[in-house]
Design a protein around this nucleic acid. Structure first.
Length: 553
RNA sequence: UGGGGCGUCGCCAAGUGGUAAGGCACCGGAUUUUGAUUCCGGCAUUCGCAGGUUCGAACCCUGCCGCCCCAGCCA
């Protein structure tokens, strides 16, 4: 992968400047997922950014679960997220944290705020709070409970903690400015009552801090210097800074960047969850999903995803990256690492009428550009199958494949000529009768004739048939998010299940192993459905196909 | 109409007053027992628009235009 200097971005510039000016003497970042769902490629951008920055500036990056909402979070997700992170290749070392570990500290911070007269218990019902918040253009109105005494606030807040009230009865609010143009500053709710068991703290608490009262303080407690988040939190920064200042604690700097959007896919957890619950896909790890588990199952190497995150850059402009960028990184990675094999997706029988022996052992390189990866043998028999699309009865001049009377090279084998086309009653071509030139195994024709085309094949008697899933983009609309209903953009042909012919070697494929099926694409043995001796292949990505491009003109 | 953010090639993105990096895509052409890979070459006289400052502006100033986000006791 690219060893050159990472391209600069505004966050790097800020950090470099902070270091040079002496505002900071170390770099501490963090990746703060909420354990309420699976990670997707958008999270990968944030992960690569945070861990990458820490690595480049010789600092550290924490993994902190932002678990302040017990009704949505589960331990199962914590483990899944850790697993994804490790798979991507990142290591948080000893720095695994949970916002819930700070609940007591956070509570003390809240009392401090009350004591400073900067927070109060508000007993308005939710609807009333919303009503008094005002609108985008009109200022809000102050809560009638805003001027409660410090003593009363403290007493009420302590009783909230003790469980003396029901959910929603009271709330702790910051006392800031109901007329602020920034809605987040209109006395935001800091704590709410929630009689719910938390995945880590169990029933110890019945009041839980809101995001705004947990995130910045958690950053502060951990000594995070640069708290990097997405653009929609920019409006929260004044509150983040206000809390840090009023609490008189270490001040991290929040920096916002634009979240990732990928063409032909949706990224919101809500929509992804919908795809799963509505059974439009087989699960969070369906190979068509933009989730990390899905991409892993599809066969995308983690290196490719990291390379992708490097290539797309970091900025503040809304953008949508073309899927081809991701596919390119996947191909680049797999081209290097995947052993080559032969497989036929859509078979057409070929009978080699004059093959000198029943079976000939052909030697094939596992990777033509890397002889060190060795060779394997490939059985060539009188009956083989080739790709239907490699034959045309009435081919155009530039078709370098098989046609009546035409010659073509069998990859890793010899040259054959199509002598006869066999059809059934309906006129469908069912087999080709060909003759071979036995002199051309591993050699060019003696008479100097040039054979332009090479096609792949599989022995019809020695090859095997295995299930293959051809995946395509989940959406045919470039930006499903802007559709009235994103379901309208779903690609009805995103999955095609077929039975393909593969060379004998492929039966030994192990779950997760990736291959290039020559001239077709990269395929990975499915991690869930493959069993020893009977792999199931997922098409990870096709090969570039300039011939298809020419044809479409 | 309040607050915040953004506008550099089809899609991303460097650039921070000295005369437009790079990647993807696209278009040639060479090599090739994968129409793959690899390799060469092409691809913004111009930076949302209009003025201004300057010897000189994508970068500074002014004014417009357009797009995104915010009214959860979600994160």
């Amino acid at each position: 992968m690219s060893q050159q200097e990472p391209t600069s971005n505004f966050i790097r510039n800020i950090i470099e400047d902070d270091l040079e000016q002496g505002r900071r003497d170390a770099v501490v970042t963090r990746f703060p997922p909420e354990p309420n769902g699976y990670l997707h490629i958008g999270h990968a951008k944030s992960i690569c950014l945070n861990f990458g920055l820490a690595e480049d500036f010789k600092g550290r990056c924490h993994l902190r679960f932002d678990d302040t909402n017990p009704v949505k979070e589960e331990d199962e997700y914590v483990e899944a997220i850790k697993d994804d992170l490790r798979w991507l290749g990142f290591d948080w070392g000893e720095h695994l944290y949970f916002a819930s570990n700070y609940f007591e500290q956070l509570y003390q911070y809240a009392e401090k705020l009350i004591e400073k007269g900067k927070a109060y218990v508000c007993s308005l019902p939710p609807e009333k709070i919303r009503e008094l918040r005002g609108t985008l253009t009109e200022p809000g109105q102050e809560s009638p409970y805003r001027e409660r005494s410090i003593e009363e606030n403290l007493d009420l807040f302590r009783k909230m903690r003790e469980g003396e009230f029901a959910d929603g009865e009271h709330v702790l609010r910051a006392k800031i400015d109901m007329a602020s143009g920034n809605l987040n500053m209109r006395d935001p709710v800091l704590y709410r009552i929630l009689h719910a068991a938390h995945h880590r703290t169990g029933d110890s608490w019945c009041i839980y801090p809101m995001y705004d009262f947990a995130h910045g303080q958690s950053d502060s407690i951990e000594g995070v210097t640069h708290s990097i988040c997405t653009l929609e939190f920019a409006d929260h920064r004044p509150l983040y800074d206000w809390l840090v200042q009023e609490l008189e604690i270490f001040a991290p700097q929040q920096i916002e960047f634009a979240r990732l959007n990928l063409s032909y896919t949706v990224m919101s957890k809500r929509k992804l969850l919908q795809l799963v619950t509505e059974k439009r896909v087989s699960g969070w790890d369906d190979p068509r999903m933009p989730t990390l588990v899905g991409m892993r199952r599809r066969g995308y190497p983690p290196e490719a995803i990291r390379d992708f995150c490097d290539r797309i850059g970091v900025g503040k402009a809304d953008s949508r990256i073309d899927l081809s960028v991701l596919e390119d990184t996947v191909r680049e990675q797999l081209n290097e690492s995947a052993p080559r094999r032969q497989a036929v997706l859509d078979p057409l029988k070929v009978i080699i009428t004059n093959l000198p022996q029943d079976e000939i052992e052909c030697s094939a390189a596992n990777h033509p550009q890397k002889p060190e990866l060795g060779k394997r043998s490939l059985p060539l028999t009188r009956e083989i199958v080739i790709e239907r699309s490699d034959f045309m009865e009435d081919p155009p001049k530039k078709f370098f494949r098989l046609g009546p009377g035409r010659e073509v090279r069998l990859r890793n084998g010899c040259i054959i000529r199509c002598d006869e086309v066999e059809k059934n009653e309906t006129g469908e071509v069912i087999a080709l009768h060909c003759s071979c030139d036995p002199e051309t195994f591993g050699a060019n024709p003696k008479d100097g004739r040039k054979i332009k085309g090479t096609i792949h094949w599989v022995s019809a008697t020695r090859g095997a048939q295995v299930p293959v899933r051809l995946y395509d983009r989940l959406f045919c609309d470039e930006n499903p998010d802007k559709l009235e209903d994103f379901h309208q953009g779903i690609n009805p042909e995103s999955l095609q299940e077929i039975t393909a012919w593969v060379e004998p070697q492929l039966l030994k494929a192990e779950a997760g192993e990736a291959f290039q099926f020559e001239r077709v694409g990269y395929f990975t043995a499915d991690g869930n459905d493959s069993t020893p001796g009977s792999p199931v292949f997922n098409r990870t990505v096709t090969l570039r196909d300039t011939w298809a491009k020419v044809q479409n003109k």
